[in-house]
Design a protein around this nucleic acid. Structure first.
Lengths: 249, 249
DNA sequence: CTGTCTAAAGTGGTCAGACCACGGACTGAC
DNA sequence: GTCAGTCCGTGGTCTGACCACTTTAGACAG
């Protein structure tokens, strides 16, 4: 006997679902491009055979995904999805997890290590010069945690960019806002400690040299060593935090 | 003279935006949990002080992000965001790029190499036994591309799981549907070539041995060697494809 | 002719009320 | 106890009206 299974809601898509799919497909195929302006809601609803509130449901969903920019009084414009939608999705996925930042750091290490390997093979001379300039900026801003943190991030971002991989770049950009604080805070914690600062600078320099020599294994090794310095700092911070508590009690 | 700047729309959030934020914040904070059922639309709209279509705009947006499951006649239920929303976001981000699959493979390599390093440090004995069993399954299904492809994927997924990193796991799960075809197709291309098949099996075995010996550098090296076999296959396929065309013309 | 101001038109944002479609619970008949 | 029908609560959709913002066109003054 044939089992009568419940119809999945996808078999009878709602009006809003149909409109959403209509636009998403055209966005994915490139038929609709960033900057394109959609017809007005009233005309569009008529054309697509739905009521205006139903159309608005679909358009609002697309807007929340960063695919449309809806402007009051002006119209709805197509946007290209950027890394922020990916970052939002990642935040939503990881929200229930404890120690998100430490875990996201693992993803950052993963992306950067693969990126620097690819960069050793693919980076142009211009890429290398840009990264060298950012290394200089990093050195020049040792006494300014905000600028230094920004230069630190830019140095790493330029390496990922030099990989020539959009996937790696998008994921990195999605992750970075979550981790941006750590760049700046580490600078705040360390910029008055010359031994640590020079160690960090030297680590960055070694990373760049291995990249410039286009040695993937060495570049990854140096990059991992650079991250290990951060691990050491976090451990020392934990120790001093708990010793501080011991004294208080 | 004070320049009169245009008010950003974020300063005057629309009703739907406010409702969306209301729910997203409660989902992120854990105040709303998977399985929770929302009040009915009419009551909810009254409670939040918006009309029903406005509420529906917000709820629909949350549903499209995978955060709600709206059931006709039954109500709206909270879902926890899973990797599919991340995968959708990634697809949207990368849609304009050429050679998406090759590029996403780089992200896969990045994730797996970091994951296996972590797994060397963190995997339980149970993890290792599960991975060993999946290696056996992989070996046993050499003559069946579908099962073999699935076993291949499961082997790799178990390694990522053994890393104990949610971020790596979520990204890997987001990426995998895009790459699932390559697991199965490679099996189709190779399962009748014993030299290649035994090479693949040996590569997987070496990966597992390094992991069981908890040697992060060796495990990563073996894993990269395993991926290099895939590179070689893809290159040979390209050569034979173009040689085939040469004969036709 | 040019610049300014105002009104109208076009656009999105919202509301209220009515009706349709689905799912589940309850009741009555067999 | 089972089955069918009805009712209720829920989501899905539509229509029409009105509000808020932006742009355009026309009138008027210098």
């Amino acid at each position: 006997m044939l089992d009568i299974v419940r119809q999945d809601t996808d078999e009878n898509p709602s009006g809003a679902d149909r409109v959403f799919t209509f636009f998403r497909d055209r966005l994915l195929s490139g038929e609709l491009k960033a900057g394109d302006r959609l017809l007005g809601e009233r005309e569009l609803a008529l054309t697509l055979g739905v009521s205006r509130p139903v159309l608005r449901e679909a358009l609002r969903s697309l807007a929340m995904l960063g695919l449309l920019d809806i402007r009051h009084g002006r119209g709805a414009y197509v946007r290209s999805a950027d890394a922020s939608v990916l970052g939002q999705a990642l935040t939503l996925c990881l929200a229930p997890e404890p120690n998100i930042l430490d875990d996201v750091l693992q993803a950052r290490i993963a992306i950067e290590c693969q990126a620097i390997r690819l960069a050793c093979l693919r980076a142009s001379e211009r890429d290398l010069q840009a990264i060298a300039a950012l290394l200089d900026t990093l050195v020049d801003s040792l006494n300014d945690p905000e600028t230094g943190g920004g230069a630190d991030y830019a140095f790493h971002l330029a390496i990922v960019r030099a990989s020539g991989s959009s996937a790696l770049m998008k994921i990195y950009e999605a992750i970075s806002p979550l981790l941006m604080r750590s760049h700046v805070e580490r600078r705040r914690d360390t910029f008055r400690e010359p031994a640590i600062t020079s160690g960090l600078v030297e680590a960055h320099r070694q990373v760049f040299l291995a990249l410039a020599q286009r040695d993937p294994d060495e570049a990854e090794r140096r990059l991992r060593a650079h991250f290990a310095i951060g691990d050491e700092l976090r451990r020392k911070n934990l120790i001093s935090t708990y010793q501080g508590q011991g004294k208080a009690s």
